[in-house]
């Protein structure tokens, strides 16, 4: 059904070298089912590639997934690249094998939220709804 406001558009990306895409695909499907516009970039995206995609697609949100342990380097690199391209309004969240201590550090570096293994999909959807309360998301 048509709405005045377009749905929130989310770039979902695998940064880093690992190819573990089970989680990212499940999350992408769940967000799509929840009414968001989801664009999955595929594997091995550099921070520059992710930001390029976000700007080209006019996305409001970037979701990052990583399982290789390089999150402390690559997640902040995406945030920094957004700053450099003056796109700090784009919200960055992430998920993967990320220890608790690192979560606090990543939030300090500008990552809005981290979802770790075992997170219910609904929790991610609820978080986005809270974050973008005014956006209409079409019901399927």
């Amino acid at each position: 059904m048509p709405t005045a406001v377009r749905p929130v558009r989310i770039i979902v990306a695998k940064v880093g070298l690992d190819g573990h895409d089970r989680g990212v695909k499940v999350v992408a499907r769940a967000l799509r089912d929840a009414g968001y516009e989801v664009i999955y970039t595929g594997l091995r995206q550099t921070p520059e590639m992710v930001v390029d995609a976000a700007l080209q697609e006019d996305a409001q949100v970037v979701g990052l997934s990583i399982h290789s342990g390089a999150h402390m380097t690559l997640f902040p690199a995406v945030v920094d690249e957004l700053k450099r391209r003056k796109a700090t309004d784009i919200v960055v969240f992430g998920g993967g094998i990320i220890p608790d201590d690192d979560i606090a550090a990543l939030k300090k570096r500008g990552v809005a939220e981290i979802f770790t293994p075992g997170t219910p999909l609904q929790e991610i959807v609820d978080w986005l709804r809270k974050r973008f309360p005014d956006e209409k998301t079409p019901k399927r």
Partner: peptide, 22 residues
């Protein structure tokens, strides 16, 4: 580690943050 699995050296630009991690 991931750079070794992906056939690249530790000083390659895309090895950043990955060396010795997994």
């Amino acid at each position: 580690d991931m750079p070794t699995l992906m056939g690249q050296d530790s000083d390659a630009p895309t090895s950043r943050g990955e060396v010795g991690h997994c």
